[in-house]
C-alpha cells in the first residue's frame, strides 16, 4: 500500500510542479493545490499506514496510528486554504485589471 501511495505522491508532486511552471496563473494555483495534496499524503505515508486505530483515546485499541503527522497536516490544510484563497483573489484581480492571467504578459505590462 505504501508503495502505491508513494507513487501517487510522486505523480501528484510531478504534475503539481509541471502546472506551477505554466504561464497561466490559474494553472499555477491549481498546481499549488496538487503540490499541497502530495505533501499531505507524503506526511501520512511516512508514519506508516493502518497500524492501529484512529488517535481517539476512547477507542480502547491496542495501538493508535501516529497522531503527529495528522496534527501537522491539519495545520497545513488550513494554512494552504488561506494561501490558495489569497492567490485566487490575486489572479482574479490581476485578470480584471490587466485583462490577462498570463504571467509573461503580466510581466510585460508591469515593465511598460
Amino acid at each position: 500500500m505504501e508503495l502505491l501511495l508513494a507513487l501517487a505522491v510522486g505523480a501528484l508532486f510531478g504534475v503539481g510542479v509541471y502546472m506551477i511552471l505554466a504561464r497561466s496563473l490559474l494553472r499555477v494555483i491549481l498546481g499549488l493545490s496538487l503540490l499541497t495534496h502530495s505533501v499531505h499524503l507524503l506526511l501520512l505515508t511516512m508514519s506508516g499506514l493502518k497500524r492501529g486505530a484512529a488517535p481517539l483515546l476512547g477507542e480502547h485499541a491496542e495501538r493508535y496510528v501516529d497522531p503527529l503527522p495528522q496534527a501537522l497536516i491539519l495545520t497545513s490544510i488550513v494554512i494552504s486554504f488561506g494561501v490558495t484563497s489569497l492567490y485566487f483573489v490575486l489572479a482574479y484581480k490581476a485578470y480584471k485589471s490587466i485583462g490577462t492571467d498570463d504571467t509573461e504578459q503580466l510581466r510585460r505590462e508591469a515593465n511598460d
Binding site: A6, V9, T45, M46
Partner: peptide, 26 residues
C-alpha cells in the same frame, strides 16, 4: 523538472518508510 521532482518525492516517501533512524515522539 517535474519528473525529477516527482521521482525525488517518491524516493523520499519510500526512504522515510524503510529506514527509521530514531523513534517517533508521538
Amino acid at each position: 523538472i517535474a519528473g525529477a521532482a516527482g521521482l525525488a518525492m517518491t524516493l523520499v516517501a519510500l526512504g522515510a518508510l524503510s529506514d527509521r533512524k530514531f523513534g517517533s515522539i508521538s
